[in-house]
Nucleic acid binder design. Structure first.
Lengths: 139, 139
DNA sequence: CGGTATCCTCGAGGATACTG
DNA sequence: CAGTATCCTCGAGGATACCG
């Protein structure tokens, strides 16, 4: 092969991941999955549910900045992708409990690694950002 | 080790991550970092640069769907956060090479785990999605 | 309690053209 | 070759009000 991309023994084969389909990278299955995980509230909700199951109201209290609309939507998206299970208890008034599925727990492992990386290194990122912005302003 | 959550020891302490600041979760440093990583092209560019350094044009060819504007912007954001190094060669015409910094390589480890998880499990996610949508339509 | 239904804003991301 | 500069679209996400 004469492509300049496929040599060098990288950590992972780029082509294997990208899976070109008639030139459309938008269908790339990896991006399709990562896109949802990258949502504004997704990681926080996953983090909470990884700790233990929660009811809707309890999640709102845990993450007070989220609007009820986005909490509903985020939970529905997570449920749709198979990460979260939704169980309704026909009490009065009704209670709804959300918990991670097996797939959700599986996905949470690499996600939590990323979150913990961010937790450990956000200072360095912040410093890099400030240095960059200062150089921009100065120059 | 005393965990806040009585349930079998949560994987990570929610409060430690969330770091409430006068009720503003928007400042959560974790989300601040994850937000950039969750960008549409970030993971793909990181994936490419983890393999080896690339020039601007080579990256465009690798990821043909990206617009030059977004490639520029994504690279600048990655550089700003300290993940990517930008080196200019004053040849004729000038060449610019992008490579991962040490911080970038550090961040790429958990990121690649997530990407590989997506690579291995996107079929299950797709199946869950279809099942969910079908149930919605049917009911 | 656990949601829908609407309306609105704002910025990520795309298309196209030009430049040192 | 490696970008800027403009303009535009579209949908994520917020605010508010109502509902079973």
């Amino acid at each position: 092969m004469d492509m300049d991309s496929a040599e060098g023994g990288g950590i992972y084969d780029f082509e294997t991941i990208v899976r070109r389909r008639e030139g459309n990278l938008g269908d790339c299955p990896v991006r399709e999955v990562i896109a949802n995980i990258g949502g504004k509230w997704t990681s926080l909700i996953m983090l909470a549910l990884a700790e233990k199951p929660y009811r809707f109201g309890a999640l709102r209290r845990l993450v007070p900045d989220i609007s009820q609309r986005m909490l509903t939507q985020t939970l529905r998206d997570l449920q749709r992708d198979g990460y979260v299970n939704r169980e309704v208890f026909p009490t009065k008034p009704p209670g709804v409990e959300y918990s991670l599925t097996e797939l959700g727990r599986s996905m949470f492992q690499p996600l939590s690694d990323l979150v913990m990386w961010a937790e450990r290194n956000h200072e360095r990122v912040r410093a890099a950002r400030e240095a960059f912005d200062e150089a921009e302003t100065g120059a």
